[in-house]
């Protein structure tokens, strides 16, 4: 049989009749920017035996309001597409399409965990997994600020906050999104009692700062309401509705209250 190749090439490595791809082509130039900011704000506070996550429901692009009801809070795990029986909540704010993709990935992972291990994932493990998911896209990040809430293995309220590439930390409270710079100082003062001193003490430098105590659920709910009604006044991307999810050992309670639509 006639050889397909000449003698020279027979000695070489096996080869194709056309050149192998040597390296990737030239770096491409892009004018397409794959991100946008959909505005809105989220907030989480943890208590003794509960955690509360809240977010407004407005979705914006520029000065336009896309819709007045686009939830930023998602139940994670549980059963079926409605996540019945779930005890973990993820809130995402920033680029809504990435937020949805992130939520769907975490939800799948948490559901797979239950099928594989026969028990619900702990919030701590879920929190670390979320960090890994975010970091896995370190060089093309999910452009979102995430807050994860649940109940830890001791029955205490647990709250984890993230940056877009997966740095995370467990905290008592955190505000994120468009109005985070308006809400966070309020929470520092009202939840962690920063710059608050015992009023009954005499004036002077030796005053004892107040020690933060775990807050009751009605108190936290009213703080969340105050934070959002104030943010709505001062930030144009925040408004329309306030969605809250309260996680306790018994499950998730969901509430919705209208905010100003202007």
């Amino acid at each position: 049989m006639a050889s397909l190749f000449n003698a020279q090439s027979m000695l070489d490595q096996p080869s194709y009749s056309f050149a192998q791809p040597t390296s990737h082509s030239e770096p491409r130039q892009h004018s397409f920017y794959p991100y946008t900011d959909n505005g809105g704000s989220t907030l989480g506070i943890s208590g003794q035996d509960f955690a509360i996550l809240a977010g407004d429901t407005r979705s914006t692009s520029g000065y336009n309001i896309n819709t007045r009801y686009a939830p930023k809070l998602f139940k994670i795990g549980g059963d079926g597409p409605n996540n019945t029986g779930s005890k973990i909540v993820l809130s995402v704010v920033g680029f809504a399409a990435d937020g949805r993709a992130l939520k769907e990935r975490l939800d799948t992972v948490v559901k797979m965990y239950k099928y594989q291990h026969g028990k619900d994932i702990s919030v701590g493990a879920c929190a670390q997994r979320l960090s890994h998911i975010l970091y896995s896209k370190r060089f093309f990040p999910y452009y979102v600020t995430a807050i994860l809430g649940g109940i830890d293995e001791e029955g205490k309220g647990a709250l984890y906050s993230y940056d877009p590439v997966g740095s995370y930390e467990r905290e008592q409270c955190r505000a994120a999104g468009a109005a985070s710079s308006l809400i966070m100082p309020f929470l520092d003062n009202q939840v962690n009692l920063k710059n608050q001193y015992d009023a009954s003490q005499p004036q002077g430098f030796g005053k004892e700062p107040l020690k933060p105590q775990p807050l009751s659920r009605p108190h936290v709910e009213s703080l969340v309401n105050d934070a959002f009604t104030s943010a709505v006044e001062r930030h144009i991307e925040v408004g329309d509705g306030l969605q809250m999810m309260i996680i306790t050992k018994d499950g998730i309670e969901e509430t919705y209250a209208p905010l100003k639509k202007d």
């Binding site: 946008t36 896309n66 819709t67 007045r68 680029f95 809504a96």
Partner: peptide
């Protein structure tokens, strides 16, 4: 509901 070139989605009574 709507979807755009960035994959952003939202829905509402009017779009």
């Amino acid at each position: 509901a709507s979807a755009d070139l960035l994959g952003t989605t939202f829905s509402g009574p009017t779009m």
